[in-house]
Every structure is written in C-alpha cells, then in structure tokens.
Write a protein that binds this DNA or RNA. Structure first.
Lengths: 155, 155
DNA sequence: CAAAAATTTCAATTATTATTGAAATATTTG
DNA sequence: CAAATATTTCAATAATAATTGAAATTTTTG
C-alpha cells in the first residue's frame, strides 16, 4: 500500500467489518466496499491488492467467492487485457431470491421433521406445522419481490 | 448421552450443520433442531445436554444466544421449578423483520458512500445510487411481509 | 513461440471462534 | 436457612477458518 489512506479506504474496511459481523470473511467485504467507492469503478486484482494491502492470493480467493455469489463481474477495459473487476449491477436485489431459496430449504426440513413425527400427538406436530406454514408464506413473498421490482421499473 | 440415538437426534445434527453452513455455531443449531422434534416439545438444560451430548456450559451459552434472537422462550411446567425451554411460536416470521433491518443498514451505508463521492462524476456515483434505490425498495418489501401475514391470518 | 506478466493454487501459518469443564453463583426445597 | 440442586461464567483447550506467499500455471505480448 504505497498510496495514502483515504476515507474511501476506511469505507472499504467498514464494509469488511460488517461482513465479519455476519460470519463472512473480511477480505471479500473490504473488496466489495472498495468497489462501491473506488475510482474508476473497475479495478484490477493488482490494484485491489495494493489499495487494500492484501496478498494477490487473497484477492484471487475473494474474487472467486464474490463472483460465485454474482456480486462482481469481469469488466473489459479498452486498451488493457488485464482482468478488471466491477460490481454487477442489480446484485443487491438477488438477496431476495436467495432468501426465497433458503425458505424453500426450510420447507423441506420441516417436512422431513413432520415425517419423523408422523405418529406423534398433534400437540407435538404443531411447532413443525407452524414453521412449515410460515416458510411457505415467506418463500412466496420473497419470490414476489424481484418480479415486483421489474414491474415497477417498467412504468 | 445414555439414551439411544434416534432419527430425531440425526435431525438435530443436520440442523446444526445447516447453521454451520451459514457461519453460525453448530450447537445452537443442534438445539433448535432438537426443539423442533423432541418430545415433549419443551426440555430442560440438563435434558438438552444429555440428549445432544454436550456440556452444560454449552447449553447455557446456546440458550443465551437463542433467546437473544427470540428463537426460544422459557416454559413453565407445572410441578417442576426447573427452567424448561421451547421454541417461541412465530419465531420464523421474524427473519423478514430482520431482513428489513439489514436493508435499512445498507441504506445508511450507501448514503455514507454517496457523501464520500459527493464530488465524483455521475458515472462513479451510479453504483451507489443503484444500491441505495434497491435497498430502499427491499426494506419496504421486507417490512410489509409481517403485516401481510397477520392480515391473511385474520380472515 | 519464447519471454514476460498476470493469475491461481495450496501448504504453512496466523488468527479466530467454539466448546469444555471446573469453579462460582444462584435458586430451590425440606 | 442450610443443604441440595441447577445454572452461569470464564479460562483453557480444541477445532476451524482466514490469510499469506512462494511455486505452478495460464495468459499476454513482442
């Protein structure tokens, strides 16, 4: 890190800490934060390593994770054949789809639980039935969100 | 763990692994899973320690975490003065409110970013504006979900 | 196509977090 | 209120995960 540390570097660090608070590794968070405020909005792996003072290896690993999550995409820069990275527009909305997916996982889990308790008294089955109903509702609602966004956009 | 291991114990373990997959500690997950399928649906700390083969200390810590998250509540059992624990009905719906809260955190973060980029070209500000708009929309939508559930219930 | 540059992999290290279990504290009961 | 029982705390340990950096691989460029 030869360049000076600016408020934008601090911003990146804070997003890193935010990530950590949710049990996610800090470096991908710092990179995400940096890509929100850096100029230009696209950066090479080398620039990221330099600005955030982390190893090339860490950048590589973090980019793998962030692109698996569709948070970043490669970005072609005329006149350069290096890999540049930038945030993928629309990424933030994906979290609703991800929540829908998680809710569907819970629907399956609660169904499995109900099979396990097939012969149990209704009193015992109720907690699983309740969870199952709620996740069915939640999956439906989370699923609607993305569609709704696009509909609102069209107008 | 003196009693035999049943499918319900396996179920608890799987919920534990599910927790771990999201970076959460395994033991609270195993307890949550057990409380979904155990009989009766309420258990003492001792029973939990016994059935899941974990220390009393771990149970204590896990209960602190699970009650901080409102996943479990103390449950009075006539004829016993021990602390019994059970799942809190309605807990699962809370995740929508939690997502709304997280979206509001991101609204603040993106606003801070926009202050940082006050003098930057529109091109540079766009990614933050986009994220800000999306989280504003998401916060609104996640916020609606709980209300909607209660409305549907009334009918 | 060979040299240079960029990128990825992965074993070793460092750092972090979960879990235990014994001691301390709090609660219950005769 | 004292003994018995239950619960919590917390330092030590065990387990896990993040990060580095050097070597291997891939890609670019003259």
């Amino acid at each position: 890190m030869s360049g000076e540390r600016t408020g934008r570097h601090e911003y990146a660090d804070e997003i890193g800490l935010y990530f950590e608070g949710y049990g996610l590794p800090r470096i991908p968070g710092r990179i995400l934060g940096w890509l929100l405020v850096c100029e230009p909005p696209h950066q090479t792996a080398e620039e990221l390593a330099e600005e955030l003072d982390i190893s090339r290896g860490s950048v590589s690993m973090a980019m793998k994770m962030l692109s698996a999550n569709k948070a970043v995409v490669r970005h072609a820069v005329p006149g350069s054949r290096r890999t540049h990275w930038r945030l993928r527009p629309g990424f933030w909305l994906d979290e609703a789809a991800e929540k829908a997916r998680q809710a569907r996982e819970w629907i399956k889990q609660t169904e499995r639980g109900l099979e396990l308790l097939a012969d149990a008294p209704p009193e015992s089955r109720r907690r699983l039935e309740e969870a199952n109903e709620m996740y069915t509702f939640l999956a439906e609602q989370y699923g609607r969100i993305e569609t709704l966004w696009h509909e609102q956009r069209k107008q």
